[in-house]
Nucleic acid binder design. Structure first.
Lengths: 113, 113
DNA sequence: CCGAATCCTGTTTGATACTG
DNA sequence: CAGTATCAAACAGGATTCGG
């Protein structure tokens, strides 16, 4: 399936595409947090402790543009906004798991040593 | 093994560790390029077309510090410097594959559409 | 050939305060 | 609650020059 065109050049291209979404300090943490269930703005902010509302808002927008998450406004009083993963967002699961697994290895080998 | 402490908070921590290495425009591409075999500075530069020598040098150093790659100098004339993945670097393979796989999906769903 | 050193710029990120 | 506005700081990245 993806073993045709598996040249270094081709892989470099795909990596760049993926990096556009993955990149930055906050996007992966946000996606990760949403894998635990739909959340509201404030909930995410409380979970990712040191993110500013500005960054959160900005990164959520970027993720929405890239079709990773959806934003739903409930016209209650006060307004409630919920964020949830799209199918594409959910498809990041395996990747996320591998990153996590490697993070554990890296932590053991380098961070704590 | 990693299902104890698999809370959202714990995962967020590990993600941050991994992100420190993964982050930036060039690190993953560099590591990817080295999965195809040991390479010299110039070879990497020719493969990752639009990287400047400064960035390449800088990112190679960072990867070395994090024990992802090793730098070997051969005292030939002129000097030759070879970069290769450490075992830790090689352990990124699965993660890299998943990122690649997801990159393909993302490209199909968003980039080209 | 393999970089190091310097300088410079624009983008990213952050702190803080404020609004519907 | 769910953001926006503003201003400042940090950093990534590029251009150029230089050396062993």
């Amino acid at each position: 399936m993806n073993q045709k065109q598996a040249t270094c050049q081709h892989k470099l291209m795909v990596t760049r595409d993926a990096l556009e979404v993955i990149q930055g300090k906050w996007r992966l943490p946000i996606v990760l947090s949403l894998t635990f269930g739909d959340k509201r703005f404030g909930e995410i902010q409380r979970e990712i402790v040191d993110i500013s509302p500005k960054m959160l808002s900005q990164e959520l927008k970027a993720l929405e543009v890239n079709k990773i998450i959806t934003r739903t406004v409930y016209d209650s009083m006060p307004v409630t906004v919920e964020y949830s993963l799209t199918p594409l967002g959910k498809s990041m699961r395996k990747m996320l798991d591998e990153i996590l697994d490697w993070g554990v290895v890296f932590r053991k080998e380098v961070v704590v040593k």
